[in-house]
Design a protein around this nucleic acid. Structure first.
Lengths: 220, 220
DNA sequence: TCGCCTCTCCCCCGTCCGGCGGAGGCGGAT
DNA sequence: ATCCGCCTCCGCCGGACGGGGGAGAGGCGA
């Protein structure tokens, strides 16, 4: 079952030792061949463009251009792009979702052992990337929409103002919020006014919309 | 590279012809063995429980219990559950998201050819299900939260009322909505009143919240 | 043809809301 | 010791909002 032509791999990681270790592991397999290395995202793009490998092992954290952007650029500019395996530390890292959206074919945890590494490379090289690319891409895009980078105003809200905004987002009136928080209605009015000012909205409805759009209700 | 023990497969599909076709394809491979069949979801659960296969090909549409629920039950009740491949028609079928959440290991399109079928079975049998199970499960769960079953009131809104609700959800006042829709302010008030009545809310803020919670803004 | 629904618009009225300016207390930072 | 930010509260005002009622025009199916 030895492949006539080996799977050609490019390594992109800013740490030389990591690249060396990966190369050692992959080179031990007769069907895998490390054809190039890159220490930055930009370098990765050009190396891949030149060498046209089958698989790229792409670290997420790299100087100049991170692994996600490099992935995007490679997939966007090349006609028959390689499968890109994103190397990350945690499976639930937010990078994972960005990478999925960018079109990564697979993932590898940094704590993965040599066997998992080799298996993953073989897997993505042979399979049609994901088992269900479109669905997962859709999910990742939705995830990005549901968790946008929190706008600046979120950090500027005081604790009390956050509470008030949450209650506003439950559809409560000022008087009801006052009862819930055990303060006077005038106090709530003050907080509401502060929230409107800081969110740049003109009424409670717009403030609640902003809260939803910002994902304010899910996050802290 | 022939496996010492073949991959044991169970087929779950309510159409006999489909099962027969699948069996014919899979049986041609020396490393695959079809050990059982099921025509309903309930049957699938019990057959899998008895035969303990490595892989289950699970149709989504089945009598009694659909493939999704059967998948859930199998994964919830068995200690070392098989990899479950959900068979669906469209890659962006809503079933896909349900199946992901239920813990399916892979997908197969009904129009897939024999080679893809065999490859997929081998893939899920050998790989650790998904390349990134936790992340995708998270995504699928989020998807379910973002797209809940639309409440009854959505269907009851007239076309004009939907328009008004959308504009309310943009943070517009009645007067602004009136200008946008080129009608009188009184007309908008009527529509708003109708929306509040049908949504069971008491003010525009609560109506907008209901619209967000219902996913009204994404859907039709 | 007769209802029924939808869309359009009108009135009045009480309430809630948001904008304005102000003020006192309290605690942390410098 | 002083200043600044936060929380608490006050009054006043105009406008927006929501509730209640009503009514005419047009469409569409029973």
């Amino acid at each position: 079952m030895t492949r006539p032509t080996p799977i050609r791999v490019v390594l992109a990681d800013d740490e030389r030792m990591v690249r060396t270790a990966l190369r050692a592991i992959l080179s031990a397999e007769p069907d895998l061949e490390v054809v190039g290395e890159a220490a930055t995202g930009a370098e990765a793009v050009s190396v891949v463009r030149d060498l046209r490998p089958d698989v790229v092992l792409m670290d997420v954290r790299m100087p100049e251009i991170d692994g996600i952007r490099a992935t995007e650029q490679i997939l966007a500019t090349l006609d028959e792009p390689p499968r890109i395996v994103v190397v990350t530390t945690f499976e639930n890292d937010s990078y994972v979702y960005d990478a999925l959206r960018a079109g990564a074919a697979g993932f590898l945890l940094k704590r993965a052992d040599a066997d998992a590494l080799v298996q993953t490379v073989r897997l993505v090289a042979r399979s049609d990337s994901l088992l269900f690319p479109a669905a997962v891409r859709t999910l990742a895009t939705e995830h990005a929409r549901a968790h946008p980078a929190p706008p600046a105003w979120v950090a500027k809200l005081t604790g009390r103002e956050r509470e008030v905004l949450r209650h506003m987002a439950e559809g409560l009136t000022n008087a009801e919020i006052a009862r819930r928080m055990e303060v006077g209605p005038a106090t709530v009015k003050s907080h509401v006014a502060a929230v409107l000012a800081k969110t740049g909205t003109r009424d409670r409805t717009q403030a609640v919309i902003a809260a939803y759009e910002a994902g304010f209700l899910n996050a802290g």
